[in-house]
Design a binder for these strands. Sequence first.
DNA 1: AATGAATGAGGGTTCATTCAT
DNA 2: CATGAATGAACCCTCATTCAT
Lengths: 194, 194, 194, 194
Amino acid sequence: MPELLTTTDTVRGRILASAIQLFVDQGYHVTTIPDIVASSKTSIGAVYHHFSSKEELARELHQQVIQEFMRQAEESVLPLASAKDRIRAYVDLLFSLTEKDSYFVAYLLHARPRVVVDDNLTVCSREGIEVTNHIIADGKAKGELRDEDDRILCGVISGIIMRLVDLRLDGLIVEPLPTLADKTTDSIWRAVRA
Amino acid sequence: MPELLTTTDTVRGRILASAIQLFVDQGYHVTTIPDIVASSKTSIGAVYHHFSSKEELARELHQQVIQEFMRQAEESVLPLASAKDRIRAYVDLLFSLTEKDSYFVAYLLHARPRVVVDDNLTVCSREGIEVTNHIIADGKAKGELRDEDDRILCGVISGIIMRLVDLRLDGLIVEPLPTLADKTTDSIWRAVRA
Amino acid sequence: MPELLTTTDTVRGRILASAIQLFVDQGYHVTTIPDIVASSKTSIGAVYHHFSSKEELARELHQQVIQEFMRQAEESVLPLASAKDRIRAYVDLLFSLTEKDSYFVAYLLHARPRVVVDDNLTVCSREGIEVTNHIIADGKAKGELRDEDDRILCGVISGIIMRLVDLRLDGLIVEPLPTLADKTTDSIWRAVRA
Amino acid sequence: MPELLTTTDTVRGRILASAIQLFVDQGYHVTTIPDIVASSKTSIGAVYHHFSSKEELARELHQQVIQEFMRQAEESVLPLASAKDRIRAYVDLLFSLTEKDSYFVAYLLHARPRVVVDDNLTVCSREGIEVTNHIIADGKAKGELRDEDDRILCGVISGIIMRLVDLRLDGLIVEPLPTLADKTTDSIWRAVRA
DNA sequence: AATGAATGAGGGTTCATTCAT
DNA sequence: CATGAATGAACCCTCATTCAT
């Protein structure tokens, strides 16, 4: 499982890589510092040398996830010209991320560490919405998308993608998601095209 | 907020009602027995009189949620004849539940207490899938739905509904969901109809 | 060693009795909750059931010491009429307390738990001063004490008494202090009489 | 605040100067090596290069305090001929030290680091007593002091001086102590003269 | 001589659970 | 049935100390 976020070369990187996996698998509160220490093959002291507290570690991790997600979206989705291309690219992005680093995507979809985010939103519900709304606004302006309530269009685009990712993460879809990218994009398009 | 599950007349009911709210708001592990005692205005002894342990309380709650959800689905969704009616009924069910008891729906969508469910699936990913798959299988057999990969159709139907519920729960949609039921059903239908 | 403060009948009492001894012997910071648990023959949980934290336990103890000290002073010293009688009573009080409960007196003289008192004064330097100053003001008004700087008189009275208590506590005086009460009072009187 | 003990020119000096201040302000156990490092503007490595452990650092400091105190007493108090002169010189010594380096005097009066001194005596109760007892023995032999119990005389002389120093250190006397030296000596003398 | 990353024992504290009343 | 005082394992975190650089 390649690590999107951190290198395992450094102690700090190993701790962050262990933390995201454990936070996703067990949740923030169930994950103990000893868990992280065992998984990252470091020591209690090393963890506290690099992060002032467990909360601070979670905050740092959360910021890195957001930053990496936005970087990828800005690089592969937003530059495209048409709404359909952008939707396709967004599907491709999340589907390929799912296969490349399922912990990263699981974190995007589900993590809402209340110690980190006070509005209790997941990355997908806060930063992900920005991407979707941008696709919708632009697509409507160009007449590519039908004149539907924004929230409905947002629910359609992000809901279908996220649900398929979830089914894959939960093991209810066993084949790699990119093989379903065409069909997924087609279904979304049927629901949102002008 | 009417309680779908339990009556607050009985001690046992008050405990379960407090538990689902606290579990949803804070998570199972952060919720302490003292929290539940304070919220339900009972006593430690009373909790342990009615439930053998915190885990058992969580298990009991989970079973009640599943049972109530399936009861409602079997009552309002499955009896209907056409795929479109069933989809509409499913939308109506989840949207009205969201307004009636947001804790109940939040539990359906997000709760995966590892102490209770070992496959780590939410009620929506386990029991909800059954409902969706039933709609799909029947709708395909009758030629009402297009001949698409089942997992795509499942993702479309459940994904759009769940995403809109989530946006409402997260405060990103402020109006009551039932006002969006028509448009939601329409969007789903565009994506899945034959 | 009779306990001036607390009864050892109750768990709470045993904890406080152990705490004052350990705080005096080792200091607040070196004294651990396990130390207190072992000495009071209770349990960690019992300590935290009765006191919300180690700091709160220290605060509670400090207040009890102050209250008991002031009660004794108000009962045995202040009611007396002449300055000489009061000085004699103050000597008697501290000397007899020293033999009765050396931990109590050692706490009076030396304890300055910064977690409890922000001005960093011992009970003797805060509450004890009140008693001494009262003796001085009244004795001067009646012409029994010589017209000397108040701080000098305060230093003489409290300094001589406290130093002898300290020498006894440190084992540099081995006989019971009350046998030295006459001579001590005489020396103080020579320095302060009109 | 001139440093009586150590020069801040050397790393070793800066460490010792920081240590005495921190030990007096917070106590030995609350003072951490990082505290000392920050205050002395050195590094962890430097501290452990110069001292084998925190205990060893405390021991070294304690020895320097004792040595400096005895040096000053032997230089300014003991050479004098009469008891009254010696008492006056002792008062002057402690009062001027208090103004010159309050940390040094506070250490003399209060520090009893159990890691350093196993009999749990302060410098004033161990080395200070020697000075006082010398004054008493000699003054009695010469008939300058009255024939009173040695411990009483010791309590009078050291008690009055130490108490005034304490009141000054605690901020309850705000003017420089040397202005009270005459009156202090006079009061002591009234209590001890033949 | 100097540095500071790494170590882990041991601190204060929480909380599920028990049981005498 | 109901209560809450008592228990102790296990949490997060601190800090004296080591050692490679």
